[in-house]
Design a protein around this nucleic acid. Structure first.
Lengths: 112, 112
DNA sequence: CAGTATCCTCATCGATACTG
DNA sequence: CAGTATCGATGAGGATACTG
């Protein structure tokens, strides 16, 4: 039994899924694994996600200590998002997900 | 670019998330990693999920070749769900998620 | 550029009851 | 036991427009 910021979790899996289990967060942290990115670049990388949702998800990830937000005081504004040290720890997880996807696509799909 | 059953995916991550990214599926496949389970046992393991949802998620996982469903012809009925060979391939992924959860809880939470 | 503000849709999931 | 049927809630996410 773990307690994190007043929420209780029975199992570590629950903790991980609490942070990352929604429609888009995994995609966003995955995109940040390459390195820091500006808000605009994240939006362009995911044209299917609205600005509003990206903004909201980044906030949630920041609150969960997964993402750092750096504001460069200039005009026009520049804000860079990057994975925190904690956030970088998702790498093995992402790699495993990637590998599974490759296997699955090879087994049930085709490359075009 | 991959094509799987008439759906297109740009990246293997997308494939994996297409199969597993919803509120409950990860929990269900995780529970099946231990071995086959009856419908009832899955329900009891997740009292927070309704029967209806569990039933629906199992169907989707079966359709995605992740889960096998075996009916024992007896009264009262007995149905066992287990991971398919494909389903078992999630193990490294689940392990990585578990490990991340442990790290996260140790860093930001406390054990009780 | 990096967001907010509104308003709204729709899928997901829940509660409850029922059946082969 | 292993589901299905119905109805209903809700909140995540979308569309669009606006701002410092």
């Amino acid at each position: 039994m773990y307690k994190i910021e007043n929420e209780a979790f029975v199992c570590p899996m629950e903790v991980t899924l609490h942070i990352l289990n929604d429609k888009w967060k995994m995609f966003i942290v995955y995109a940040l694994l390459d390195g820091p990115r500006r808000f605009k670049d994240i939006c362009e990388k995911f044209p299917k996600i609205t600005q509003k949702t990206i903004s909201q998800k980044l906030k949630e990830l920041e609150a969960a200590h997964m993402v750092n937000r750096v504001v460069y005081p200039q005009v026009p504004p520049k804000v860079e998002y990057s994975l925190s040290e904690t956030g970088k720890r998702i790498e093995p997880m992402v790699k495993a997900m990637f590998d599974f996807g490759v296997f699955y696509a090879e087994t049930y799909g085709c490359v075009e």
